[in-house]
Amino acid sequence: MASGTDILFDPKLATKQGAILATLRRWYAPAEVLKMITSVNAELLALSGARSPYPGKLEVVEEGALADLLLVEGNPIADIQLIADPAKNFLVIMKDGKIYKNILK
């Protein structure tokens, strides 16, 4: 199961993306939700052949791999509600190897 949405095109809803995704816990375990919104979506997009946005390795943390990483204050597998407030609970945000947020400095 992959997760998709158009809420990113609505500025008001985009800020609530984590809270909306956290509501999936009604039907899925937190680990399943996290996998659906991350690696499963990446695997699905990688199937698009030459148009794939992911030319590198997925699902590994190593040099040369595509790594988007979040360091979360707490355990989102135990408490999926943590993704509802990324400003508070996401301590480090890294996309494509570039750090966009780091409050651990």
Rank of each mutant, 00 (worst) to 15 (best):
K57W: 12
I103N: 13
L91E: 00
A2H: 05
Y28D: 03
T5A: 11
I7F: 10
P11L: 12
I37R: 01
G4D: 04
L13P: 01
I80F: 08
I99C: 12
N41I: 02
K16V: 01
A50S: 10
L21G: 10
L34I: 02
V92A: 01
P53V: 11
G97P: 00
A78P: 00
K95H: 04
L13R: 15
P76E: 05
M36R: 05
L45T: 10
N41W: 03
E59S: 12
P55I: 05
D85G: 04
L34M: 04
I80Q: 02
A84S: 06
W27G: 07
N41T: 03
L34A: 02
T38E: 02
F9K: 06
I37M: 08
K98G: 02
I83A: 09
P76S: 08
K57L: 14
W27L: 11
L21H: 07
E32V: 07
E59Q: 15
R25H: 13
L70V: 03
I37A: 05
N75E: 06
Y100K: 07
A67K: 08
A42Y: 06
Q81F: 02
V33P: 00
K88P: 00
D96N: 12
Q81C: 08
N41P: 00
R25V: 13
A78K: 13
I20R: 09
I99P: 05
S39I: 11
G74T: 05
V40R: 07
Q81E: 14
E63T: 15
A31Y: 08
M94K: 02
K12L: 08
M36G: 02
Y28Q: 07
D96Q: 11
L21Y: 08
T5G: 14
L44R: 11
D6T: 12
F90N: 09
I37E: 00
I80V: 10
L45F: 09
K95Q: 08
A22K: 04
L21K: 12
V33K: 05
Q17K: 10
L34C: 03
Q81L: 04
Y28C: 13
A65P: 02
K88I: 01
G4N: 07
F9I: 07
D85F: 13
A84I: 00
P86I: 07
Q81T: 12
A19H: 06
L91N: 01
N89Q: 03
L71P: 01
E32R: 11
P53C: 12
D68I: 13
V92T: 00
I83Y: 05
P11R: 13
T38D: 01
L44K: 10
F90P: 03
G18I: 02
A29T: 06
G49Y: 06
L44Y: 13
K88S: 05
E62N: 12
A46D: 15
G97H: 04
